[in-house]
Simulated scan of single mutants.
Amino acid sequence: MKSTLKLLGVLGILIALYFVVQFTTDRGRSKSFRSELVQIDTAAVTKVQIKAGGEQLVMEKEAGKWKVNTATDKKVAATSSSVKGALNSLMSVKPSRLVAKDDSKWKDYQVDSAGTRVEVFEGGEKTLDLVVGRFNMEGQRQFSTYVRLFDKPEVYSAANFMGASLSTNSASYRNQQLARITKDSVYQVTFEYPDSAFTLSKTDGKWLLDGHPADSANTAKYLQGIAYLSNRNFADDFNPIGSPLYSVTYLVKSGNPLKMEGYVPNGELVVRSDSNPEEYFKDAALSDKVFKGAGYFLAR
C-alpha cells in the first residue's frame, strides 16, 4: 500500500512538473516570438515608403493609379504589377526563428541604420513599419533575410524572403518596355534616317532589302533583339523639341504597327516607343540595337 501511494505521489509530481514546463514555455514563447510580422490588406494600401542608404523611394496611389518619385523627386507612373510584386514580397515575410531579443545584435544582422526601412500605409494609417536586414544563405537552396519591426527589439530570420526585392531605385517600378512583338509576326521594317531610308520586307518566307536579298541570319538576329526590348535608363530630364532624327516602323501580322523614334539632344541618343509612349530612354546601346544601317542587312 505504501509503495502504491509512493508511486502515485511520484506520478503526481511528474504531472505537475509537466504542466509547469508547458505553461512557462508557452508564456515565454508568446512574449518573445511573433508568428506574424506583416498584416496588411494589399488591396487597401495607398502608400509605400522604402528608405535605404540615405535614399528614399515613395510609391503613392493617386486617383487609382500608382506614382513613384524619381531621384530628382519627379512623380512618374509606376506599374501596378511592380507595386503588387513589392507588396506580395512583404506578405511572404514569415518569421521562422527568433535570433535576437534585444538591440545588441542589430548591427550583426544589419537591422540597424544599415537596414532597409519599409513603411506601408492604408489611407492615413501606417499598417507596417519593417526593417529589412542582412541576406543569409542556409545551405545550397535555402535562404533567409533578417528582419524586425521598427519599434520592437526582436530580430527574426524570415525564411525564403529576398530583401533585395524592395529596391529604392524607381526604375524597378516603372514601365521599362520598348517593344513586345513576336519575331516571326514581323513582315516589314522601315528605317528612316536623316541621310537615308530603306525597307526590309518578307516575301515568300525570304527577307529582301529594297528588293534585293538580305542576310537572313542578321535579320533574324536583329528582330530577336527587338522582340522583347526593355531598358532601365529613363531620360526624365528630356523634353522633345522638333521631330526625331531617326525612326523605325515595324509592321506585324494581326497587330498594330510599332514605331520607335530617336532624338539626339546634345549628341546623346534618346529613344521613344509607341509601345510605351509616356517614357523616354537615354542609352547609347539602343543605337546599335534599334537603328541599324543598311549594310548590316546586306547579303554577303
Score class of each variant (00 low, 15 high):
17 L>G: 10
259 K>T: 14
279 E>P: 00
136 N>E: 13
277 P>I: 15
198 F>R: 08
259 K>S: 14
62 E>N: 07
49 Q>K: 10
238 F>C: 11
278 E>N: 13
232 R>I: 07
216 S>D: 09
181 I>R: 11
285 A>K: 12
111 V>D: 04
81 S>V: 00
84 K>A: 12
206 K>Y: 02
248 V>Q: 03
140 Q>L: 15
286 L>M: 13
110 Q>R: 14
29 R>E: 14
48 V>N: 02
85 G>R: 03
164 A>M: 12
247 S>V: 04
281 F>Y: 15
268 E>C: 11
182 T>V: 09
119 E>P: 01
69 N>S: 10
265 P>V: 10
120 V>K: 03
25 T>A: 09
93 V>Q: 05
204 D>N: 11
89 S>Q: 03
59 M>D: 01
253 K>R: 08
8 L>V: 08
162 M>T: 15
134 R>W: 06
257 P>M: 11
153 P>W: 02
279 E>K: 03
134 R>Q: 15
44 A>R: 11
205 G>L: 05
107 K>V: 00
193 Y>T: 09
198 F>P: 01
297 F>Q: 11
149 L>I: 05
170 S>D: 06
221 K>Q: 15
175 N>R: 04
274 D>V: 06
245 L>K: 07
252 V>M: 06
23 F>D: 07
47 K>H: 04
270 V>G: 11
296 Y>G: 13
201 S>C: 08
59 M>N: 02
272 R>P: 04
265 P>D: 13
214 A>D: 01
150 F>I: 00
188 Q>I: 13
4 T>G: 13
193 Y>C: 10
159 A>K: 14
192 E>D: 15
2 K>F: 12
103 D>K: 13
219 T>V: 15
183 K>W: 04
90 L>M: 07
165 S>W: 00
126 K>G: 06
144 S>Y: 01
56 Q>P: 03
19 F>R: 06
56 Q>I: 08
126 K>T: 00
153 P>L: 06
245 L>E: 07
113 S>R: 10
1 M>H: 05
261 E>R: 04
245 L>W: 01
